[in-house]
Nucleic acid binder design. Sequence first.
DNA 1: TGTACATCAGTGAACGCGCGTTCACTGATGTAC
DNA 2: TGTACATCAGTGAACGCGCGTTCACTGATGTAC
Lengths: 195, 195
Amino acid sequence: MGHSQAEKAQSRERILKEAARQVRDGGLESLSVAKLMRSVNLTHGGFYGHFASRAELLACALERALADGAAASQAATGAGRAAPGPADFEALLRSYLSRSHRDARGQGCAIAALAADVARADERGGEVREVMSARVEAFIARIGASLQADDDEAMFAASAMVGGLLLARVMNDRRRSDQLLHAVKTALSERQAGG
Amino acid sequence: MGHSQAEKAQSRERILKEAARQVRDGGLESLSVAKLMRSVNLTHGGFYGHFASRAELLACALERALADGAAASQAATGAGRAAPGPADFEALLRSYLSRSHRDARGQGCAIAALAADVARADERGGEVREVMSARVEAFIARIGASLQADDDEAMFAASAMVGGLLLARVMNDRRRSDQLLHAVKTALSERQAGG
DNA sequence: TGTACATCAGTGAACGCGCGTTCACTGATGTAC
DNA sequence: TGTACATCAGTGAACGCGCGTTCACTGATGTAC
């Protein structure tokens, strides 16, 4: 086992990455210090050399999970190449409301996966709410830019996308779930073509 | 303390009602047998006279929470009086996307509160998924009836409503949260007026 | 109506377990000379 | 370059705690006579 400073940074990175994955997959409350450390081949005692507490880790893991989701969606739409526009929004819709996104909870949008958990965090633990709030605003802004529409329209589209993904993940009948994904995609797509 | 059969039924009802409330407020995983029994002034040992296990309780509590939400929404729109129609949908929108619904997690829509939790239940514990699936379909059907539109349109509206409520609950800035609620309400309302 | 007794709703101690956190420790790292 | 030593990343036992579940028990209920 290594003990250099560089290796410590690598350890922290491995812990955080795995924490973000576990949190997206099982929710904020599912994260256990001992299980997390075991899954990166370390012992639980070492955890406190990297984070002050489980609560601090949760905030970091949430931030990371949200950042990963944002990066994945950027990659999926190939944004950054040119000015955002309708084609960008279409690509975002296609990837966000795809069957593979619905089925890959552990690698998908952390807003959809964790919104309810964060809403529950209430007054106590206000840090996670701030982290989530900022990312929701960024998501809305990103949609607004590609839609070339105002905030209200972007908020509406964001709501339909997040809600659609969540409902699709909950439906037992795959055909109905597929239909819902398609219905939301089509409605949003036609809306922007029409507007 | 009473021990009659009638009182046992009342006890079960009190347990279940409180469980549904706690589950809506804190999520499925937050429910603890000991805390639940304490909050209805019973001891934890007695729990197993009413339910076979925590898992069985969870399924019952979820069912109850979903039923409560459906009933509340029926009451809010005054449905049952006449044939469903546009006015019905408007009333549903107004109550579902109200600030009071956003702020009253413990008494609100259990679909929005628990969808992510149920999605995580995966293969294991398929019972909760079935319960949730059925209620989501009922929600879509109810919207479809009042909208007098096809399934796809109802699925779209349901997605936007659930997603809107969730995002509004997560946003730290009350003004922005209010704006989002209003944006979703207006977009859905205009959509049906236009169609 | 009154007594004897089986039933069974609810009690509370006990179980084994995993949790978050602390701490004395080990041994490789990397610096001082 | 080689040796002596401080640092500190990671180890693993231990802590107190709350969990889900079991079980021997208590005492009111409600039935049989």
